[in-house]
């Protein structure tokens, strides 16, 4: 697609989407939000980029293979679930710690894992479909 308005606007939109996605991810701690919806928002940002400047450009902007992002997300989520083991809690039970007055938890790690897995999974699908679509053209 060759639209000057879209490709110019997309640059701002992608940045906006990414910042907003991180905000939603962290907000999910105590309020509606979380890794899943945050991941979808971030994936939307890259999807818009792919529509505006093509899949190759979007892949370049992402730098990493989306499938690897998804895999790392899975690993984060699994680690968050397994962390409870050595501490004698049930699988996937939340583990909390306080560092310098800030509470951090394995729940957050799990959410980050979900965030990455959703970005990776959705972008893999979108890029694959776009690639196939261009070849069929």
């Amino acid at each position: 697609m060759n639209s000057l308005i879209l490709s110019t606007g997309a640059r701002f939109l992608v940045a906006l989407f990414l910042v907003f996605s991180v905000y939603v991810l962290l907000r999910g701690h105590n309020a509606p939000g979380g890794g899943f919806i945050g991941g979808l928002i971030a994936a939307c940002g890259f999807a818009i980029h792919a529509f505006a400047s093509g899949v190759a450009e979007a892949r370049r902007a992402l730098r990493v293979d989306p499938r690897s992002i998804g895999t790392w997300g899975l690993i984060c989520a699994l680690i968050a679930g397994l962390m409870a083991g050595p501490l004698g809690a049930a699988p996937f039970q939340g583990i909390w710690a306080e560092i310098a007055g800030y509470k951090i938890s394995s729940v957050l790690l799990f959410d980050i894992g979900v965030y990455l897995a959703v970005i990776g999974g959705v972008l893999t699908l979108i890029f694959a479909l776009e690639d196939l679509g261009e070849e069929v053209g």
Partner: peptide, 20 residues
Amino acid sequence: IVIGFGLFAFALALTIRAWR
């Protein structure tokens, strides 16, 4: 809905492959 979305996207990609 999420699972359905994933399955549908796969089925769509498969359809494109089949068409090709």
